Amino acid sequence: MSSIFTKIINGEIPCYKITETEEFIAFLDVNPNAKGHTLCVPKQEINKIFDMPEDLYLKLMAFSRKVAIALEKTVPCKRIGMAVVGLEVPHTHVHLIPLQDMDDMRFQIKTTLTPEEFSKLAQVIAENL
């Protein structure tokens, strides 16, 4: 059965896409810890990050770095935090979260944006790539 991320990659579920390549896609998390919370996902459905072939893992990190730099140019923050948890969706993904303090990384406090705010934010991050 396809993960929710595979359905997003295949266009079966909409997303607030920032960018994509042949191998990866980046889109805004719709249940964000903070404004700009972004997911970087390999298009190949692999459950655990350390099960990825090393070359694909390194490419995912390079892709995530580019997105993080654009994200930091877009959303005022002290830094961009990165987390790989992987328990909620069985498809490798990197969380990029604009941080003001440690609570932004706890996955307990969420922020809310309107669909218009999500769309505009994704567009501006993409422009900063």
Rank of each mutant, 00 (worst) to 15 (best):
2 S>Q: 15
3 S>N: 10
3 S>A: 05
3 S>M: 09
3 S>T: 15
5 F>P: 12
5 F>Q: 04
10 N>T: 06
11 G>L: 03
11 G>V: 02
13 I>F: 01
13 I>L: 10
14 P>C: 06
14 P>F: 01
15 C>R: 14
16 Y>L: 12
17 K>H: 01
17 K>R: 14
18 I>C: 09
20 E>D: 13
20 E>N: 05
20 E>T: 02
21 T>M: 11
21 T>D: 08
24 F>T: 03
25 I>S: 07
27 F>G: 00
27 F>A: 03
30 V>N: 11
33 N>F: 03
34 A>V: 06
37 H>C: 02
37 H>L: 05
37 H>E: 01
37 H>T: 00
38 T>H: 06
40 C>P: 06
41 V>W: 01
41 V>M: 10
42 P>D: 04
42 P>Y: 03
43 K>C: 02
45 E>H: 14
45 E>R: 13
46 I>M: 09
46 I>V: 13
49 I>S: 10
50 F>W: 12
51 D>V: 04
51 D>S: 12
56 L>G: 02
58 L>N: 09
58 L>G: 01
58 L>W: 13
59 K>Q: 10
59 K>C: 02
60 L>G: 08
60 L>N: 11
60 L>K: 10
61 M>R: 13
62 A>W: 04
62 A>G: 04
64 S>G: 10
64 S>F: 00
65 R>I: 01
66 K>I: 07
67 V>L: 07
68 A>T: 05
71 L>T: 03
71 L>Y: 06
72 E>W: 01
73 K>D: 06
74 T>L: 00
74 T>A: 01
74 T>P: 02
75 V>R: 00
77 C>F: 12
78 K>P: 00
79 R>E: 08
85 V>N: 14
85 V>Y: 14
87 L>E: 14
88 E>L: 15
88 E>V: 12
89 V>F: 07
90 P>N: 15
91 H>M: 09
91 H>P: 09
93 H>V: 06
94 V>A: 07
98 P>H: 05
99 L>M: 15
100 Q>L: 06
101 D>N: 07
102 M>P: 03
104 D>F: 05
106 R>G: 12
106 R>L: 10
107 F>L: 11
107 F>T: 04
108 Q>D: 07
109 I>T: 06
109 I>C: 04
112 T>P: 00
114 T>Q: 02
115 P>R: 10
115 P>K: 13
116 E>K: 06
116 E>P: 08
118 F>G: 02
120 K>F: 11
124 V>W: 12
125 I>S: 07
125 I>V: 13
126 A>N: 08
126 A>T: 06
126 A>R: 14
128 N>A: 02
129 L>K: 01
129 L>T: 00
